[in-house]
């Protein structure tokens, strides 16, 4: 092996290359793709549904769907928004189903499900208590937002998708992303402030 070949072997392979290999039937490439994306796919599903069971279900489903359609997938496209689109659509199905079953809001403040899935802050001594508290409050505030606000906010402020990617996942024109996102951010801030006011601090 030459030095160049060794360097190429050591360098991380990008998603496009992995998709191409997976399309040629390389099982290892499939597994690597799944390993790479399943965490963020799961977390997104959790953020959208507020339920760990649903999140696991949705994320496994999303990965299976991705692989079952892999041959038709354009390997020059980014993988993550594509997976996120599946997750988002499945989450919408779940919202719809829940709405027909019971009239109460999907997630209300303090309801279980939206409070316990953040990693225990005491496990990481480098996180100061104040920002940990802020994160928890924001997470609870997120739970009271409407679905359409929550999804755009989560895509941008938890997963850092670009405006173009958000438009792609949500199926909306790029030009409307900014105003929708801004509305969601304001709503989150308001929900957060309201909560803080309610707790007297």
């Amino acid at each position: 092996m030459t030095a160049n070949e060794a360097a190429a072997a050591a360098a991380p392979v990008d998603d496009h290359e992995l998709v191409r290999r997976a399309q040629h039937g390389e099982t290892e490439a499939c597994e690597e793709l799944a390993r790479r994306h399943r965490r963020s796919v799961f977390v997104l599903a959790l953020q959208l549904t507020g339920s760990q069971d649903d999140a696991l279900d949705i994320s496994q489903d999303a990965l299976l769907r991705f692989f079952s359609k892999l041959n038709r997938f354009d390997s020059t496209r980014p993988v993550r928004p594509w997976l996120f689109t599946i997750v988002r659509n499945r989450a919408r199905d779940i919202w719809r189903r829940r709405k027909t079953r019971r009239a109460k809001p999907l997630i209300s403040d303090g309801e279980e499900g939206f409070s316990y899935d953040i990693v225990d802050p005491t496990a990481d001594p480098h996180q100061d208590l104040e920002s940990t508290e802020l994160r928890h409050r924001l997470w609870r505030a997120l739970g009271v937002l409407s679905e359409s606000k929550r999804e755009i906010l989560v895509l941008r402020d938890y997963h850092d998708l670009s405006y173009v990617e958000m438009a792609d996942v949500l199926g909306i024109p790029t030009g409307t992303v900014m105003s929708r996102l801004h509305g969601a951010r304001k709503a989150l801030r308001d929900a957060y402030l309201e909560q803080q006011g309610g707790q007297g601090g």
Binding site: A22, T27, C30, E31, A34, R38, R39, F42, V43, L46, L56, Q60, L63, L64, F67, D117, I118, V119, D124, S131, L134, R135, L138, W139, D157, Y158, D160, R185, L188, R189, Y192
Partner: peptide
């Protein structure tokens, strides 16, 4: 807010839980 959300850690299933399902 964005700084806080972007650094929020989330738990996710252990590797074994994923590997139980067929992948391809």
């Amino acid at each position: 807010i964005r700084k806080a959300t972007m650094t929020t850690p989330f738990t996710s299933p252990a590797d074994e839980q994923w590997d139980e399902r067929p992948q391809g």
